[in-house]
Design a protein around this nucleic acid. Structure first.
Lengths: 207, 207
DNA sequence: CCCCTTTCTGTACGTTTGTACATCAATTGA
DNA sequence: TCAATTGATGTACAAACGTACAGAAAGGGG
């Protein structure tokens, strides 16, 4: 009942330092996604990874170091997703609308969303981990900047981060059309930069 | 050295159930902002609030219940900020650009930013607290929808959430001009809804 | 085959946790 | 003034924690 599926681990007792370490990090990353960085304990990791308690202390000087490795693993996963983004933007006939399906595939993946929010939370509350959390944002801006003005690239990245929050709090994902429309609006603004009064909708003044 | 400033508390021993409960919740909210929801312990709350350990268990059936009360307190604070938003949007000569200073004042307040990110994180990982975390977003959309089409209101709220993440991870806040520009772009898109190929910048194809 | 090195395992210990509860102090109504 | 009551306090305890470490077991070289 309280048993959780074992992640990966080599057979018990069998020697396999690298495999074991990998299994421990994978289990830790999983637990962090499920319960946040603070929910990590040596014993839970051991149970999930299918290794002994001692093994979880052998490869890492402290629990904090294990946590750090697990977070780096999560960053590596999102890095892989960004490689796909780079592929998309490098297409000859690329348009901003092409980003939408990619963004949406990200938003509908609870694991990805959770990982991102946890990294943000970790980075915001602990300056030590800020660089880790910022990697997604910085790389995304860098990639998008090859096709958009840097400030437009940043605006798009900010919007996507906001959409990540939306995804984390809502069951209904954003429609693809909506994402396309918003990304295009940010990437190709009507008046590229002004503060003059703008025409606006008027949905009826409050009573 | 390890002493932390006391929050509010009534004099030790003096009877004041409501004041004491208030001080406990305030201390808990403070600790949550500083170290996340998981860092909350009865003893830390007692020290910060300047009350005895027993008092922290007296008014709440469990630590989880205390945590819940503290989170509700944080939501109440952001609710107050949203009242200000409602004032702004109700002005006769309101334009979207008027939102920017308000948004920015939010972003440069570390406490507000941290509170929001913590609520999001709590809501994303625990369905029980999702409604709590969603209150900011839902109310913001509702308020903005009096002046913008609902889907534009939502886009703006998503962007602001993204800007909150940006603020949590960067020391340099977003320029007011940038915020104005992005909000206007989202509120008044060039082509209100289309997926046809758009003219685009070309910052030089990758080598 | 056996031995030596490296890896793995489980137990143990001191700390900190949430929570229960007995004791004490403050307030109130007579 | 003086019980009686309600609120506040500190101690106690089982459970879970991070970590250290001694011993068992596996794999490879002789």
């Amino acid at each position: 009942m309280t048993e959780q599926p074992v992640i990966d681990a080599p057979a018990p007792g069998r020697r396999d330092p690298e495999g074991r370490k990998r299994a421990i990090i994978a289990a830790a990353a999983e637990l962090i996604i499920e319960g946040g960085t603070a929910s990590l304990t040596h014993r839970r990791v051991a149970a999930r990874a299918g290794v002994s308690l001692g093994s979880t202390t052998q490869y890492f000087a402290s629990l904090d170091e294990l946590r750090e490795s697990a977070l780096e693993q999560l960053v590596a996963e999102t890095d892989a997703a960004l490689d796909l983004l780079a592929e998309i933007t490098s297409a000859d006939d690329f348009t901003v609308a092409d980003l939408a399906p990619f963004v949406r595939s990200w938003l509908v993946d609870p694991r990805q969303v959770q990982a991102d929010l946890i990294l943000v939370s970790a980075g915001a509350s602990d300056p030590t981990r800020r660089a880790l959390a910022r990697r997604w944002f910085d790389r995304a801006v860098a990639i998008l900047s090859e096709r958009l003005p840097p400030d437009r690239a940043r605006a798009v990245a900010i919007y996507v981060d906001g959409a990540m929050i939306h995804a984390g709090l809502h069951d209904e994902p954003l429609d693809l059309d909506v994402i396309v429309g918003d990304l295009e609006a940010l990437a190709h603004p009507a008046r590229p930069r002004s503060t003059e009064p703008a025409p606006q909708h008027q949905n009826g003044p409050r009573s």
